[in-house]
Amino acid sequence: MQRATLNRMTPYAFMAPAAIVMVIALLYPLLYMVWGSFRDWNPAQTIGETEFVGFKNYITLFYDPAFRESLSVTLRFAVIVVSVEMVIGVGLALLLDRNIRGMSVLRTLFILPMMIAPVVVGLMWRYMYHPTVGTFNRWLKSIGLEGVDWLGQNALMSVIIADIWQWTPFIFILALAALQSLPRSALEAARIDGATPWQQIWHIKIPLMMPVLIVTCLLRLIDAFKVLEVILVMTEGGPGLSTEILALRISRTATEFRELGVAAAMSNYLLILLLILTAAMFAYTKIQEAREARIRAAAEEDM
């Protein structure tokens, strides 16, 4: 009996170290945050000295126009950057999936932006966007156009452009990898079947790449909701609240406003949002599969 029990326990024993690290590094801070979000907590206090306030922090936030604005900025930012990045990234991959001389150099160049530290990216773009000495306005003026108020009136658009510049390569390399692993013969069959290059893309390449694209899109969305450094360096959330994304607001609530409980509650809102997003993506795939299975079953019953 003992031997059998030991055998059964072996996998758990092997998993234990990883599980312990997970609990300490992931679960503990997470639960700490959830617990903290129910308390009125000033950074000067230890968590034991704080007062339990129930859902007050969540309710306050829900009616807080600044938080709502920040949430809406985050949503707009994430949706726009991810959609544009997906289109450009997949488009580039489709264009560059061929054997031309120098293509490997070109591919490497394309993924350079992703390798630069976000803070550096932020600084770089901040100087390029500078109203008088920045590259963009100097160039615009040199061809006789008005300068653009990049980080003022158009701040959200400007940070969106910078993010697109930095993260399109991520989608590009994953899409390219997906493309190159497609079954060559299926594409040849499509050519014989008379598909034009466009039709091959729409009917064969994109649908076959879909599983990879969905995961890529999800990863980018999660990342976009958490973006911080580039925007912090470029605009610090301004002017006004126009680029104050949630991550920035959370950090300011904790450091400037000294309200740890509220900051924790805000983080939880973000976490819930991301969880819903992820669950929705998986649910979508499952529903699709179930629908197909149902159609098939119905069709086969008819016979």
């Binding site: 079954p183 013969s185 299926a186 040849e188 069959a189 499509a190 050519r191 014989i192 079947d193 008379g194 598909a195 009917h203 064969i204 649908p207 076959l208 879909m210 098939r296």
Partner: peptide, 29 residues
């Protein structure tokens, strides 16, 4: 181009379109 040559081809690895059902595969052209 292949499509202008009026031919059909059967491949060694079948080269079916994995995301389409049998009917869709057969009717693609």
């Amino acid at each position: 181009e292949p499509k202008e040559r009026d031919l059909a081809m059967v491949f060694q690895d079948y080269a079916l379109y994995p995301h389409m059902n049998v009917a869709k595969n057969m009717s693609f052209a």
